[in-house]
């Protein structure tokens, strides 16, 4: 039987902390199996070797924050059969999207000694605002088991199992009682996309919303309940304005509390 060539996978970095692409190298036990199935054709974090495109699957980490990157993402798209964005930066603009709520020119003038050399965009935006994205994998950082699931699904032409419902289901499947109800700890779980394994509530902490908004999130009702638990508007605004600040439902909710 003739062996078919292994699918070529590329890993691209835009504005990000590298944490999500490191998740691929974190797959220690599975790494050899992964490398048995794919050819890591472009992954500067792991190897200097570069195999020319086109690539079967591109994993894209990071958001678009500069004119250069806004052009580069189109080249990546053209070189990729399937483009999968990984992490909160690539899917929602990341923590650097806090700039979207401020004046970037003012920031650069304060931060940099020679701001005239800084070429940056006023907004940090997710990849899907620029090119067609085949699949978005959420998280800050992504969950490595979900990354393996998505790569496996794309390699074998099936739908990835990454449900978009609330973190609450994962808590209940784990047997973790609700933090809001059992000890009055505010939690973003009811409006947050599952996928992390519901780690924080298992340690009696509220969810921080690392995976961004779930399907049909009711942020207003959750905020009302947080207020009943004694949380003020400024804290609510900051809770919704973190790694997924620019994801539409979280952005709207944080802005509602900013106006208060």
């Amino acid at each position: 039987m003739a062996t078919r060539p292994k699918p070529k996978v590329a890993v691209w970095k835009f504005a990000s902390c590298d944490g999500c692409q490191l998740s691929l190298l974190d797959c220690e036990d599975e790494l050899l199996a992964v490398l048995g199935e794919i050819e890591l054709a472009y992954f500067p974090e792991a190897t200097r070797m570069v195999v020319k495109g086109p690539y079967d699957i591109s994993l894209v980490e990071g958001s678009i924050t500069s004119p250069h990157d806004a052009e580069r993402i189109h080249k990546v798209r053209r070189a990729s059969k399937k483009l999968v964005t990984i992490g909160a930066c690539a899917t929602a603009g990341g923590i650097q999207a806090l700039r979207n709520f401020a004046d970037v020119k003012e920031y650069t003038s304060i931060v940099y000694a020679s701001p005239q050399y800084i070429e940056t965009l006023s907004h940090s935006t997710p990849i899907q605002n620029h090119v067609f994205v085949d699949f978005e994998l959420r998280g800050c950082p992504i969950n490595k088991a979900q990354l393996l699931e998505v790569v496996s699904a794309f390699l074998h032409g099936r739908k990835p199992v990454t449900p978009p419902h609330a973190v609450c289901l994962a808590c209940k499947l784990n047997g973790t009682p609700c933090t809001m109800v059992a000890h009055g700890t505010p939690c973003l779980g009811p409006v947050t996309h599952t996928g992390c394994g519901a780690i924080c509530p298992a340690f009696h902490r509220g969810c921080y919303g690392c995976f961004g908004p779930k399907e049909t999130p009711n942020t207003t009702s959750l905020s009302n309940q947080w207020e009943k638990l004694g949380v003020d508007s400024a804290t609510l605004m900051r809770a919704f304005r973190s790694f997924n600040a620019y994801a539409e439902p979280f952005r709207k909710e944080s802005e509602a509390h900013e106006r208060k």
């Binding site: 496996s152 609450c168 289901l169 499947l173 009811p190 049909t216």
Partner: peptide, 24 residues
């Protein structure tokens, strides 16, 4: 919140789903 907590804690709610996966 459509968070599903009520159905998870309910002692009679019985719904389940089936998920198919492959390894790498």
């Amino acid at each position: 919140l459509n968070c599903a907590n009520c159905t998870m804690v309910c002692p009679t709610c019985f719904c389940m789903t089936v998920e198919d996966t492959t390894d790498i």
